[in-house]
Design a protein around this nucleic acid. Structure first.
Length: 564
DNA sequence: GCCGTTTTCGGCCCGACTGTTTTCAGTCG
């Protein structure tokens, strides 16, 4: 699909044009177009051939013409023109904290800076400091930004972000006790995005200065970027930036709404506010000087004529329209999972025995746990021979004697081999309670056909990590989602939402599409030890981002329904 | 460059923090 290519092109043009000083609204129009293309599920080629380019919001006459040109010729004159203005090595300087388009543009134009090395030289020989608006402190900030950049300031996995936020919240609560009220993550952590760049935390307090000061003195703070009366900013030892904002009670809800975003969601909300002659900021919602609300998030949405929108939905993907017409779904809740349908034991590449994994699941209040160790061809993961699998089945049967309100399901994560056959024969698979089939090799060899063949095997209950992607490491294999969803629908086969922090596979967008296609999903941890069972929480977050309800997710059901 | 239930022209979210200024610009979220 050309969608991603075009999205990247418009995004790159936006960056370059901003550096060269193009009017910001044009830059933002390109950014918006990039985002729309990036999130589009339908093939842009098809939309174009149906003459529906103009139906997309953010795609007007000029951008549509550029898309058209690219689809027809494989080239875009405007893109080439823009690209020639500034080399990519300059554009990448924007990733440095504290260095924005104005400074990059000025360094490029006035000093001929072409790369990171040039920039360092301009700092070292003092020429950067001589430019207008530059001083010793600003240069110091850019230096720090370069250090951070070179030490690999990447996005962190959602699960890690939540752990860091929880840790900070616990410590601040312990220090301040009743002096602080509500305290919670905001930003992309609260929206449960699969990765997070910075962690935002909001705290309800009148002691802003003291709380911010304590925050910047926490043991995990390696560097302090800012410390004011309402905002503090640190970098942790692991290189993650954490922002804390101190907010008084009367505006906590407004601040929560504001800092949770997303940006696109807030922009649209502000647009609605404007049509009512209201103004929203982080302190509240106002009509002229008169404050209408702001202590709770519900205030803001209610006054705009909307029902409260769960944070995971706030991406401007139709949630505001639904909140206006009252058609928001009843999202699956964090307490509704009754069991995990894909975990490993130390029989294959897990770290704990089946018994220990089961005890951990019981502690979480689960009613069932499917042990799905790897199959014989997965040598790297110590896959089970047929005999070893039979031993497992016997062991599980014996263990189940001890439980009254809990059941271990005998399962497997069977490899889908390169020819599309499964790694165990049907006779063996028939003896299992739950069968997950996954691709672990030969990623380029007709993955769609192999997955569909697996789906058509009557013993297969669920397809594991459908795309095989690893965030930050490897793109998914090229699967035809629509064909696979159709096959799964016809055979009542589940597709999993794998909650491993670097997988989230299906991702939110495809999980939503799957549910719309009439498929049931399961959220599973793919845990290899007891702690990893906790990944379920972020998996539910992704499911909520996908607009899934309890009915869309099979493992909200009791065990009888799983086995039926 | 996009968009329209006040608009086909004139808007386009908005404020904190910081540093370099002496009233503001850049960056960030």
């Amino acid at each position: 699909m050309k969608n991603k290519e075009l999205a990247a092109m418009f995004s790159e043009m936006a960056d370059i044009l901003e550096i060269t000083g193009e009017v910001i609204f044009k830059v933002n129009a390109y950014r918006k177009a990039s985002r729309v293309l990036d999130e589009l599920l339908e093939d842009i080629t098809r939309i174009h051939s149906e003459g529906k380019l103009h139906d997309l919001t953010g795609i007007g006459k000029a951008i549509a013409a550029k898309i058209e040109e690219y689809l027809a010729t494989g080239d875009m004159r405007k893109f080439n023109e823009v690209k020639a203005m500034v080399p990519p090595s300059v554009v990448s300087l924007l990733e440095i904290q504290g260095l924005g388009p104005k400074t990059v543009g000025m360094a490029h134009k006035r000093l001929g800076v072409q790369s990171l090395d040039d920039l360092k030289r301009a700092i070292a020989d003092g020429s950067l400091e001589k430019l207008p608006g530059m001083g010793a402190k600003k240069i110091g900030g850019i230096r720090r930004g370069i250090e951070l950049f070179e030490s690999g300031h990447k996005r962190v996995f959602l699960y890690d972000a939540i752990c860091i936020a929880d840790d900070i919240i616990t410590q601040l609560k312990a220090t301040f006790g009743n002096e602080i009220g509500r305290i919670s993550p905001a930003g992309s952590t609260r929206r449960m995005r699969e990765t997070v760049r910075d962690i935002d935390i909001l705290v309800e307090t009148d002691q802003g200065e003291a709380v911010v000061a304590a925050f910047t003195r926490l043991p995990l703070a390696k560097a302090v970027l800012a410390a004011g009366a309402t905002k503090g900013s640190i970098v942790t030892a692991s290189g993650v930036q954490v922002d804390l904002r101190a907010v008084p009670t009367a505006s906590f809800g407004a601040a929560q709404q504001y800092f949770t975003g997303s940006k696109a969601h807030n922009v649209k909300l502000r647009g609605i506010a404007r049509t009512h002659n209201f103004k929203i900021n982080e302190y509240g919602i106002y009509e002229g000087e008169r404050k209408l609300g702001g202590e709770s998030e519900e205030d803001i949405y209610r006054i705009l004529g909307l029902t409260w929108i769960p944070s995971e939905l706030r991406e401007d993907r139709g949630e505001i329209e639904c909140a206006a017409s009252g058609c928001l779904p009843q999202l699956i809740d964090y307490g509704e999972i009754k069991g995990d349908l894909h975990v490993h034991s130390n029989k294959s590449d897990g770290h704990l025995s089946i018994a220990r994994m089961s005890e951990a699941a019981v502690k979480l209040g689960y009613q069932y746990l499917a042990i799905c160790d790897h199959s014989k061809s997965a040598a790297y993961a110590r896959g089970l021979s047929p005999e070893a699998l039979l031993d497992s089945i016997a062991e599980i049967k014996a263990l189940n004697e001890k439980f009254s309100n809990f059941r271990i399901l005998a399962g497997t994560e069977v490899d889908i081999l390169s020819d599309g056959n499964l790694d165990y024969d049907d006779e063996l698979l028939a003896q299992l309670d739950f069968v997950v089939a996954s691709i672990h090799s030969a990623f380029t060899q007709n993955p769609t056909g192999r997955i569909i063949k697996a789906i058509e095997n009557p013993h297969v209950d669920m397809i594991g990590h459908l795309s095989g992607r690893l965030l930050g490491k490897r793109d998914g294999y090229a699967v035809d989602y629509e064909r696979i969803f159709e096959a799964a629908r016809q055979t009542n086969t589940l597709i999993e939402i794998n909650a491993q922090p670097m997988r989230f596979d299906l991702d939110d967008i495809h999980a939503r599409r799957a549910a719309e296609s009439g498929i049931k999903l399961a959220i599973i941890s793919d845990a290899h030890d007891a702690v990893q069972l906790q990944y379920m929480k972020t998996g539910i977050g992704i499911a909520r981002r996908a607009w899934l309800t309890k009915q869309d997710v099979l493992n909200t059901a009791p065990v009888e329904q799983i086995l039926s």
